[in-house]
Design a protein around this nucleic acid. Structure first.
Length: 949
RNA sequence: GCGGGGGUACCCGAGCAUGGCCAAAGGGGCAAGGCUUAGGACCUUGUUGCGUAGGCAUCCGAGGGUUCAAAUCCCUCCCCCCGCACCA
């Protein structure tokens, strides 16, 4: 018996598949096509075990469909669009130690690093790495002849065409936009995945109302998220230590922190710094507060952050816990008051809002309730602020102190006051991030105004309605997402689709200097893989891919002759490409992580609806959740971050694939666990041993064979059901757990039919193939199967279903378990076991009772006459039997028709061995059997009486 | 706030649509025993309590209801998680 040597086995089959072109895919009109992709990865560096989860699901589905007889296309590509490659090579050029050691640790050589100082080389390097070290290494059945990436010339032609179509359909517009951008390299995404960032992924873009306080001929500015609180203003907070700047905005002079001014220029265009003013010099002065006819005083504070808002804060002590406590502190600080000669005894909070939970004076109340002692207790103050805001925003009403706004709900007043203040020229709107964010290139991330941003008009009514209509007919997994997707599409707003700056991608066709944004160029790409294959073969050139070409291939417009003239591509070739597209499209399934639910999948869908013909709209979406490290993101310290090639060797590719497939449903986040990965390695080991031991059997047919055949057959049926529904985990469970445990049981019960075991052994190997193809090929090899990958899956056979055989086996299992429970509690030696099968009259009576259970105990009378039974026993038996029958308990077993005594006799050996005891079987009604305690009379059909001594 | 998903034994996790073989699959962990080594093993058994006869009691977030019968259906409450946009 050979050992399971996964390293060599996996190596061997990778080679065999490659050398025999096993994954090459071509059109075959005889077969139904099945086209599946995963959302291609960006070029962001080395991938980790988390990324492989989605790809593995895709491969499992692709392989399953293939073995079901579909002609499967499973291509792949990459998405270098963006600035990730650029910033990586920039870091390498700068000799960034951390980056270089990261590259080396993941296997990059010195030469690799040298050449990657050119961003194009970064793309090439990772393209090859993804293909070879990730996808092929994992045994994916991808056909990489279809490979493409988004910064290649041919792909750019495709994107160019797509945008022309969108324009034709009037789906491109321009309007102003405030977006997050890096001051060095242009627009970046601020999001928790931190694709573009090195810090600050959880920052939120916030809209502030910029309040302007008249201060001589200048304005002091303060940014607030709560313009509705202006009526409660009592003072301004300024840090005496900070040097503020005076900037010229239009014709006005504004005072704010230097950081704020730096950020503001991205929103206001050029602003000019004309002066500086030290915070200290303003303390004690009065300013005229906007929106209210009152002067308020400038007071010193240290909690203001020059890098947040304008660095100057307006104070509303009634509703802002920070302000309340700062005001209290300053009132108690005699020294400070002396220093700035402040007279602030009169300064008291002004109630402006009444909410359900806090009533009025909410800041004071919450500070007492939460027992907040000082300004320094920032954590508690943040929490208090949030609580008050939440309650105030949803349930609050403006009080009489709020002038015209008195009585309004806070939600309304907020908008109204903001608008009115802006109208009166006493306020403006600015944007800022809730926390600091830093780009991967090291630049600071700010919010900038783009006056003429290009958008794709996803809000279009017709497009939205069409898309929603289509979604309803798609296969979307999981169900919760299927339920949500129509709402998501409905709610999908216009989305910016072009950008400027340091960026790899396609030039925007209608505006020089703009490049197509990263999401906008990856919506229709499954269609392009079909063309990429012909480009890769060298049959067509990028320059030949003009508008007519794509119109012809994707939309079937124009005739081949004309298109051939304008493109220079032979007519035959054009027709071939068009028919490839017609054959493969629409896409059957697109798989991606849960991060795509609200961005990628909706645009993927809507662009298909907008650009392609109705029959080419995608048929399915499969969303998988993430693999996470302990307590969150995958990282070095939390696990899952080791290089994929290392993991593949350590655990084995098949073990990892099984880990993904079986350790959790695809629709939950799964915590990475080394332990579990090793467990799956061991699982494969024992699977291997089981199959090997099966092959050594040389016995003949026995009764138990029928049971195994029947159970196996049922599980095959179930396997197809769950796999057709993409229930990958359940499928793996049947193949790796349910089926082997049935075989285990069969062997335990003395089954050893060589022919049957070999037949089923081969079938089960086929069933594991989609999950763990390497070990499957190796095992299938024993049966001289050339490539199990290319073999069909076993099918459900109606005539092998044998409920009687299953009932008989169930019967034995029960007798076994009854004996066992008696042995567990009874104080007996257990050397001899007597089993008494129920008398014939009991069986007859039971049959009658089952047929006429509606009669209840009324049936007694009839039975007394008909049955030749001891009257003392009949009554209690009927009562119990009625109970059993109405409880629906054990119906299958009760209805089964077999001779209990014979079945027991045939299983006697098993029972004796199992309990190491002598087993004797007798008829309960018999005359001369040994039964010292009179147990026999307790026998019931399918539940024999037992006596043990 | 808007939208969605959940709470099952030590842990993970099935079951819930179609109430009844559900003291509740499977895996992991743990414990006991076996094997004496395929060692980051393997095999058996146990893992709510009680019970010297195959049984009984209690149990699926909490409380209530419907029913002959509830993890499953209905109501109320508590708690947790996810998405909310320029991230493929």
């Amino acid at each position: 018996m050979d050992e399971y040597d996964y390293i060599n086995i996996e190596e061997r089959w990778r080679k065999e598949w490659e050398e025999n072109d096993i994954h090459k895919t071509k059109k075959d009109e005889e077969k139904t096509p099945f086209y599946v992709i995963f959302a291609y990865p960006g070029i962001s560096g080395f991938l980790h075990l988390g990324h492989m989860r989605c790809y593995t699901y895709t491969d499992i589905i692709a392989r399953y469909k293939e073995m079901k007889g579909y002609n499967v296309l499973f291509p792949g590509g990459t998405h270098p669009t963006g600035n990730q490659a650029i910033s990586l090579s920039k870091k390498l050029r700068e000799g960034d130690e951390e980056k270089i050691s990261y590259m080396k640790k993941n296997g990059a050589s010195q030469e690799d690093i040298e050449r990657m100082k050119d961003p194009e080389e970064v793309v090439k390097y990772f393209n090859e790495l993804y293909k070879k070290d990730y996808w092929k290494k994992f045994g994916f059945s991808m056909d990489l002849d279809y490979f493409t990436y988004t910064t290649r010339e041919d792909y750019k032609k495709f994107i160019d065409w797509q945008f022309r179509k969108l324009k034709e359909k009037d789906l491109l517009i321009q309007k102003p936009y405030y977006g997050t951008e890096c001051v060095e390299c242009g627009p970046v995404a601020v999001d928790p995945s931190e694709t573009d960032l090195s810090k600050g992924g959880t920052a939120e873009k916030q809209e502030f109302t910029l309040l302007k306080f008249e201060y001589g001929n200048r304005y002091v500015t303060a940014a607030t998220l709560r313009p509705e609180t202006v009526f409660g203003q009592t003072n301004l907070w300024v840090d005496p230590e900070v040097e503020y700047v005076v900037v010229k905005v239009d014709d006005e002079e504004w005072i704010m922190s230097e950081e704020a001014a730096d950020k503001l220029k991205y929103q206001k265009g050029s602003i000019e710094k004309i002066d500086t003013v030290k915070g200290e010099s303003m303390i004690g002065d009065s300013v005229k507060a906007p929106g209210i006819k009152r002067d308020i005083v400038i007071l010193p504070a240290s909690f203001t952050d020059p890098d947040f808002g304008t660095g100057i804060v307006t104070s509303v002590p009634s509703d802002a816990p920070y302000d309340w406590i700062a005001l209290k502190d300053i009132k108690d600080d005699e020294e400070l008051k002396e220093k700035y000669s402040l007279d602030i005894e009169e300064l008291e909070p002004i109630d402006i809002i009444e909410s359900d939970q806090w009533g009025t004076s909410s800041a004071e109340k919450i500070i007492q309730e939460m027992d907040i002692g000082s300004q320094e207790d920032e954590e508690k103050l943040e929490e208090a602020t949030k609580k008050i805001y939440k309650s105030g925003f949803h349930t609050g009403k403006m009080l009489d102190s709020c002038g015209d706004y008195a009585g309004m709900r806070v939600q309304e007043a907020k908008e109204k006051i903001k608008e009115d203040l802006i109208e009166m020229g006493k306020a403006d709107v600015i944007y800022d991030l809730s926390e600091e964010a830093i780009c991967r290139c090291g630049g600071k991330v700010v919010v900038g105004k783009i006056p003429d941003q290009w958008f794709i008009r996803y809000s279009d009514r017709e497009l939205t309605e069409d898309s929603i209509e289509h979604v309803k007919n798609m296969t979307v997994k999981p169900q919760s997402y299927a339920d949500n997707l129509p709402t998501t599409v409905e709610w999908f707003r216009d989305r910016s689709c072009a950008r400027k700056g340091n960026w790899m991608g396609t030039e925007f066709p209608f505006d020089e200097g703009w490049l197509v944004e990263a999401i906008a160029d990856s919506t229709l790409y499954p269609a392009f893989y079909v063309i990429a294959r012909h480009y890769n073969k060298g049959d067509i050139e990028a320059e030949q891919m003009n508008e007519e070409f794509f119109d012809f291939v994707f939309l079937g417009e124009d005739d081949a002759e004309e298109v051939s003239k304008s493109t220079g591509i032979p007519q035959g070739k054009l027709r071939e490409i068009r028919s490839d597209f017609e054959y493969w499209y629409p896409l059957d399934l697109n798989l991606g992580g849960k991060e795509h639910m609200t961005v990628h999948f909706p645009v993927f869908l809507m662009n298909h609806v907008a650009v392609l013909d109705k029959e080419d709209r995608p048929r399915g979406i499969f969303v998988n959740w993430w693999l996470v490290g302990k307590g969150g993101k995958i990282s070095k310290s939390k696990g899952g971050a080791e290089p994929i090639q290392d993991a593949a060797e350590r655990y084995g590719v098949d073990a990892l694939r099984l880990f993904y497939a079986h350790s959790a449903s695809p629709f939950v986040d799964k915590e990475w666990s080394e332990e579990e990965a090793f467990n799956y390695q061991r699982k494969l080991n024992s699977f291997w041993d089981l199959v090997e031991s099966i092959r050594d059997m040389d016995g003949q047919k026995k009764e138990i064979d029928d049971y195994l055949k029947s159970r196996f057959n049922e599980l095959v049926k179930r396997y197809h059901e769950v796999m057709d529904d993409y229930e990958i985990r359940k499928g793996a469970n049947i193949a790796f757990y349910d089926l082997p445990s049935e075989i285990d049981w069969y062997l335990k019960r003395g089954g050893q039919n060589s022919a049957l075991l070999n037949e089923l052994g081969e079938k089960i190997v086929r069933m594991i193939t989609p999950f763990t193809p390497h070990i499957a090929e190796e095992l299938a090899d024993r049966w001289k199967v050339e490539f199990v990958t290319k073999e069909p899956l076993p099918r459900y056979e109606e005539d092998e279903f044998d409920p009687e055989a299953e009932a008989r086996e169930e019967y034995i299992k029960r007798v076994h378990s009854d004996i066992k429970s008696i042995l567990d509690i009874a104080d007996v030696e257990g050397n001899k076991i007597y089993i008494y099968v129920a008398e014939g009259w009991k069986k007859k009576a039971l049959d009658r009772i089952m047929k006429e259970k509606d009669k209840g105990m009324g049936i007694m009378g009839e039975l007394v006459k008909e049955m030749d039974a001891p009257s003392k026993e009949l009554a209690p038996f009927v009562k119990e039997a009625l109970d059993d029958v109405t409880k629906k308990k054990d119906q299958k077993l009760l209805k089964a028709d077999f001779e209990e005594k014979e079945v027991l006799e045939r299983s006697k050996e098993y029972l004796e061995k199992s309990f190491e005891a002598e087993v004797k079987i007798a008829d309960a009604g018999g005359e001369d059997h040994y039964d010292p305690k009179g147990r026999a009379s307790k026998s019931k059909p399918k539940k024999p009486a037992i006596y043990i001594e």
